[in-house]
Nucleic acid binder design. Structure first.
Lengths: 211, 211
DNA sequence: CAATTTTTTGACCGATTGGACAAACGTTAG
DNA sequence: CTAACGTTTGTCCAATCGGTCAAAAAATTG
């Protein structure tokens, strides 16, 4: 997909500094949101002055936009990998696992995305209704095929995808709450393995007691 | 629980105007976050001047604090209702239904809460580790009892509660995304009934095809 | 070296922010 | 009526915001 944005040629130093800024901006934006973050905060986190930062990104929004476009690519990678080859139940299980791993390894990206959606997705609405919808529709069709073939239970594929997104991203977006509720004992590093075990069972068998 | 905050006596007009402000602030805070919202925005939404608003709430934070405390009470009501009387599977099913109804009927409250948690819960952290944890632990114990009695499948009660929160609140917090992906046809008012049907099946039977 | 280009910074600007304050307004009680 | 009290607003302020600009500093080139 051509976004119409031409990437100008850049020196090696420019590339590195831009990466430094994006890394700092990810940290700041993901915890304070777009409007809650200041250029000064990002500049300080990147170890440079505000005018210097503005030399690499002319506007605050440019940083955010670059971050969002880059994010969406990696963020949807697990769903893109979901395909018709292999056992359906295994395919879904590994999709859930991959999504949970992303929540564990890239919580800032998850929160950045959540912040944007929460506030009405003013900056990426076209992407949601376009690229994202197309991708989800495509994968929903695959899942529907599995259902018709009797490989998995018949249900709504779109809401199934929503539920996978919701349950996995919850461990990144609501991390403070999860850790607060689990307490110091169970809220440690093991919480992701516990979550993985639980989700596997939920999506496989549900809660009905085994006959 | 005594918060230590004394509620001063207020005239009838003060009560009404304060309600008006809180209603407006809920609208603004829930879509822009705390730092992204301005007193002017809230004042305009409430149909009064900024100094007039500051006559009823001395500081911007006072409005947010009042909103958050009030919110937590109503927000946790469904979980409080979960008790040992009645059939476990029915209890859980109606908890899920009630939570989904709250996401449908009070999306602004859900988003206000999500905004706060996303940003590290700086203003309600003690409540999470205190009141909330106590309540969840208590209900987790009840659920554990059901598991021991063989009434529902054995799994992690805490993560079960997380998954119910995540899947239901998703329809409030990520509403724009849900509607964008479902498209104009399926993204209409019926989406909550579709979600209810799906979630019921997921939590009951999971995805494994019926033998 | 000198000339040129790229990078960095201090100083500054207009706009917006949360909030203060006194004066004006409205209402009610005597 | 008038005095007292509760309510509303216009004006103002210091702090912070995103962003500009010229000039200094550093790096690159010849």
């Amino acid at each position: 997909m051509n976004t119409g944005i031409e990437a100008p040629r850049r020196t090696r130093i420019q590339q590195e500094k831009r990466e430094l800024i994006l890394e700092a901006a990810l940290e700041v934006f993901s915890t304070h949101g777009f409007r809650g973050s200041t250029i000064d905060q990002i500049a300080e986190a990147a170890g440079m002055s505000k005018p210097n930062l503005l030399y690499y990104f002319r506007r605050k929004e440019d940083i955010h936009e670059t971050l969002m476009h880059r994010l969406l690519d990696t963020w949807l990678a697990p769903l893109r990998e979901l395909d018709d080859i292999g056992d359906p139940m295994t395919e879904l299980r590994s999709y859930i696992r991959r999504k949970l791993e992303m929540a564990r390894d890239f919580p800032r990206e998850s929160r950045l995305f959540a912040n944007e959606i929460l506030q009405g997705a003013p900056r990426i609405m076209p992407l949601l209704a376009g690229e994202l919808k197309t991708l989800v529709d495509e994968k929903a069709a695959i899942i529907k095929g599995w259902m018709r073939a009797g490989k998995i239970a018949k249900t709504d594929p779109w809401h199934l995808i929503f539920s996978i997104w919701a349950t996995t991203q919850h461990y990144a977006d609501f991390d403070v709450q999860v850790r607060a509720v689990l307490g110091p004992n169970r809220g440690g590093d093991g919480r992701f393995e516990d979550a993985a075990r639980f989700l596997e069972q939920l999506f496989l068998d549900g809660l009905k007691p085994k006959g």
